[in-house]
């Protein structure tokens, strides 16, 4: 099966600032991808590139095998729920469904009506009068009822209270189970997406820091604690993500596929949040290994 999303050397420049650079990514189908990173890391830029709202400044991106050109056929296969889940304030809930039916050839009216019914939305209510959670649900309904193959969501839960956040994710996951969608959703909090996602992309400072299957990431990252040691003396296949030292003790967070055999280390597993925070907390030099850690790069 081909990747639902593939980026190669993808970059986007606003003026002289790169909002996204050197982005290489391949997302297999059928996944729920969490795109995680601090605000301003380039998450929105990436998603907007993926739906063709922006054109790349460098490299290329393919969505469902074609470049996001905005053609009608591709539009129908990709759903997008934008940041702050925009809706037409003056239009009613029913008007929104009508809009969706008019603008999408594959519109699933039964699904849309059923969802609105189940969510307890009053069809005559104007979207401007809905709560943030209801508006997000309405936007999600529009995104789902067009029956896309890939659904992209830009910080869909950021502005929701915890209950609405949970309901939104429950609902989204239900749709994923029902429709075999591939989903990419961005968030600046890992905890938001931890349960919902099975694939993680960490974006910091306009660059992809790490990407992969979550279970695989958890299985290959370890925290090593032991007597103080120079990171250069670690085995070559152990890639240091972060390190901290006291005068006697060293703590490393390493990524390696091989088992850790050195008996001097106490090895512990990481939670997803720890793992992401380790990548986010890296200093600028560490994030660009090609510049500051040539030895490591050569060894890999």
């Amino acid at each position: 099966m081909t990747a639902v999303l593939r980026a190669q050397g993808l970059g986007k420049k606003y003026g002289r600032r790169w909002a996204l650079s050197d982005c290489d990514l391949e997302v297999p189908p059928g996944r729920v991808v969490g795109l995680v990173g601090p605000n301003g890391a380039g998450k929105s830029t990436f998603l907007n590139l993926a739906v063709g709202m922006l054109a790349p400044s460098a490299g290329e991106i393919e969505v469902l095998g074609t470049r996001p050109t905005g053609r009608r056929a591709q539009r129908a296969k990709v759903g997008f729920v934008g940041q702050d889940t925009p809706t037409y304030a003056a239009l009613s809930v029913a008007d929104h469904l009508r809009l969706g039916a008019h603008l999408n050839p594959g519109w699933d009216a039964a699904l849309a009506d059923d969802r609105v019914d189940r969510l307890g939305l009053d069809p005559r209510q104007r979207a401007g009068r809905l709560s943030g959670g209801q508006r997000a649900q309405l936007a999600l309904t529009l995104g789902i009822a067009k029956r896309p193959e890939l659904l992209l969501l830009d910080e869909p839960v950021a502005s929701l209270d915890p209950l609405a956040r949970r309901e939104f994710l429950q609902d989204l996951m239900g749709a994923v189970a029902d429709q075999q969608l591939s989903v990419v959703l961005s968030s600046h909090l890992v905890s938001d997406v931890e349960r919902a996602c099975d694939y993680l992309v960490v974006l910091v400072d306009s660059r992809v820091q790490v990407a992969g299957d979550i279970e695989n990431l958890l299985a290959t990252h370890h925290r090593l604690t032991g007597p103080r040691r120079d990171p250069a003396k670690l085995p070559a296949e152990q890639l240091v993500v972060s390190e901290s030292h006291t005068d006697r003790q060293s703590t490393f967070l390493v990524r390696t596929d091989a088992p850790i055999l050195d008996p001097a280390w106490e090895v512990s597993q990481l939670g997803l949040e720890d793992l992401v925070l380790a990548y986010m907390g890296r200093s600028a030099e560490q994030r660009n290994p090609s510049r500051s850690r040539p030895t490591l790069e050569a060894l890999r």
Partner: peptide, 14 residues
């Protein structure tokens, strides 16, 4: 699967 997913807000693949 849908029930579990809807209740726990977890990934269906899980």
């Amino acid at each position: 699967v849908k029930d579990v997913v809807g209740q726990l807000a977890i990934n269906p693949n899980t």
